[in-house]
Design a binder for these strands. Structure first.
Lengths: 110, 110
DNA sequence: GTCATGGGCAACCTCCTGGTTGCCTATGGA
DNA sequence: TCCATAGGCAACCAGGAGGTTGCCCATGAC
C-alpha cells in the first residue's frame, strides 16, 4: 500500500493534470468511449498537433488516459479509475466538512 | 448563467488549485471546520509564511477558501461549494463513460 | 509606551509549463 | 513505387508558478 505522502502526491498530480482547459476538453472528447487518434483529437483546438501530444502525455502520466497503437496511428482512450478516485476523495473532503459543521453546531446549541 | 466556455475555465482553475501537494495539505487542515490563521497553517510545512500565503491566495481565488479578519490575524476557512461542484463534475464524467461503455457493449452483442 | 507577533507588499530567482517550429520515420493507399 | 498522412523527437522560447528575502504596518500584551 502506498504511503500517505505518496498518495497525496499522486492525488495532487491527477488534479494538476485536470487543471487545464485544453486537457478537460480532450477528456470530454474521450468520454464517449471511442479511442481517438491524435490527429482527430487535435481537430478544433487551435493548437498544434505537438501541443496536443504533450497534453496527452500529461494525462497519460497520471493514468487518466492510455494509448494503443493501431497501425500508423496511436489511439487514446480514457481510463476512468483515477477520475473515480479523485471524485471519491472530493466527496470524502466535503463529507468531513459536513460532519465537522454538524459537530460544531451541536456544540453551540448545547 | 455562465457560458459553457466560462464554466470550463472555472472548472479547470479549481482543479489547478487542487493540483498541488501543499494546497491539498492546507485544505486537509481546514476540513475540521475551524478557521485557522496563516501562522497556524504555516506550522509543520517547511515553508515560509509568505509561501503559504500565496497558496492560500490561490485557493481563495477559486473560492475554495475564504478569509475573515479577526483583529490582527486573518483566519481562513473552507468553502466546500466549489469542491462539491468539482466532485459532481467528475461523477458526471465517469457516469458518461459508463453509459458509453454499456452502449458499445450492447452494440457488439447484438 | 514598548515590544513581540501576525500579516502585507514587492523584488527577485529558478524551474516548469504550454506552445511553437523543423525535421525525421513509418505506414497505408493509389 | 511514390506520396500523403500520422507521429515522434529535439530545440527553443515566453511566461507563470513556487519559493525566498527584506522591509514595513498594525495590533495586542505587558
Amino acid at each position: 500500500m502506498p504511503s500517505a505522502a505518496a498518495a497525496l502526491r499522486t492525488r495532487a498530480s491527477v488534479f494538476a493534470a485536470l487543471g487545464d482547459e485544453t486537457r478537460l476538453g480532450l477528456l470530454a472528447k474521450l468520454t464517449n468511449g471511442e479511442p481517438l487518434s491524435i490527429a482527430r483529437l487535435t481537430e478544433g483546438t487551435k493548437l498544434t498537433r505537438q501541443a496536443v501530444t504533450k497534453h496527452l502525455r500529461v494525462l497519460e502520466d497520471v493514468g487518466v488516459v492510455y494509448s494503443i497503437k493501431a497501425g500508423r496511428e496511436s489511439r487514446f482512450a480514457l481510463d476512468p479509475r483515477p477520475i473515480v478516485n479523485a471524485q471519491a476523495y472530493l466527496l470524502h473532503v466535503s463529507r468531513q466538512w459536513d460532519d465537522a459543521l454538524a459537530r460544531l453546531k451541536a456544540l453551540v446549541e448545547r
